[in-house]
Amino acid sequence: MLDKTRDRVPAGRFDEALGPSNESTKSMRHIISLLVENESGALSRIANMFSARGYNIEALSVAPTDDDTVSRMTVVTSGTDEIIEQIIKQLNKLVDVIKLIDLTESTHIERELMLVKVNIRENEVTELMQLIDVFRGHVIDVTDNVYTAELTGDAEKLKAFLHNLEPFDLAEVVRSGPLGIARGDRALRI
C-alpha cells in the first residue's frame, strides 16, 4: 500500500516523452504563495481576479502571519506557461498584493492537512489503524462506530490515502488546501 504513494511519475518525465516543444503549451499545476495586506476585500479581489479572467482556483488557503498586518495566501492553480505568467502579473497588479512567488519554479515542500471521519464495523478496526499508521496519520477521535483521523502530506499522499479508504464507509473528508514553502534559503518575506 505504501508503494502507491511512491509509485508516481516523477515531475517532468511525462513532458520529456512529449518533447520539450510541448512544455509551454501544456497545462501544469502551480502553487502560488502571496503576502497580502490584511484588509477587508483583499481575499475577494484575488478570488474575483481568477473568476473574472476565467482562471481556475483548485485550492486556496489564507491565514495571518507573524506580522498581523499581513496575510499569507496559497493558491493552487493550473495553466500553460502563458496563463501562469498572466495570472502572476494580474495578481501583482492588485494593490493589496505585497509580494508573491510561484513555488513550483523551484524545489519546495508542500503540505496539506486532511481530517477523515470513517463509519466503522468492529472487524475493520485493525485494518483501518494499520492504514492510518502506514500513512503516518493519527486517530484523533473515537466513538463506538466512528473513527476520525488526521493526516498531513502532499496532494499525492492524501490522494493515495483516500484511495485506500475506498473499501471503508467514509463519512466525511475535510482538507485544508495545500500550504507551501520553498526549500533552502529562498523565502517569501517583505
Binding site: 498572466q86 501583482n92 497588479k93
Partner: peptide, 11 residues
C-alpha cells in the same frame, strides 16, 4: 507601464 499588458495576447 502595465506588465500585464505585455505578452497578454501577442507575444
Amino acid at each position: 507601464i502595465d506588465p500585464s499588458s505585455i505578452s497578454k495576447t501577442v507575444k
